[in-house]
Amino acid sequence: MILDLKHIYKDYQQDKLVVPVLKDISLQVEEGEYVAVMGPSGSGKTTLMNIIGCLDRPTSGTYELAGEDILKYKDKEMSNVRLRSIGFVFQSFHLLPRQSALENVALPLSYAGVKKRERRERAARALERVGLGDRLNFKPTQLSGGQKQRVAIARAMVNNPKLLLADEPTGALDSKSGKQIMELFAALHREGVTIVMITHDKAIASHAKRVVQIIDGEITEGSKEVQDA
């Protein structure tokens, strides 16, 4: 089991008011699964993903990533987990605007201490894998939305993480680019990457093998398998 969350609560402190956002979330994900997380806006999807992605800590509950009790880790170890085990894809891409596609993709490699030469090679290969082998030196502003998201996916995957977390990866894209992204995810899924993807879109969610519904901070449709289309 790659993800094992039990009784996760997350409260936010709003002035003197405690706002509960996640309420008793338990979620298990097996290695190689492809899970979509759906739910209305404000239901706590991103909050959950931040916890899964080791960007945030729950108020209470336990979380094991690949059998490791992540919550006892310190900041430094957390960033190492993010670097090696998790790839992030965001709705708004979050590419560094002044850096080329290649440099953007190579960024996590430099944090991992990979030598410059190897960085370039591996980043180039990752970009080829997402179909951007001919756009290595393009700046984000010279790329379409779909291409930007593919650069972001290449960046997420360049350190070969076991887990890919995507927060509305197609939210800012037209349906055609969105479909291309879904094809890429399917390919990654076939390669054995575990994917957890947040989406609003039923059609997009249907690409996943399993859909988790969150409403008002609670999982309502836990481990219901989706029929293969």
Binding site: G53, L55, S79, R84, H94, L96, L107, A156, N159
Partner: peptide
């Protein structure tokens, strides 16, 4: 945003 992104993808504080 840039700093947040960098930290999210694994940059340490010292970096």
């Amino acid at each position: 945003q840039e700093i947040g992104l960098k930290k999210a993808i694994g940059a340490r504080k010292s970096r």
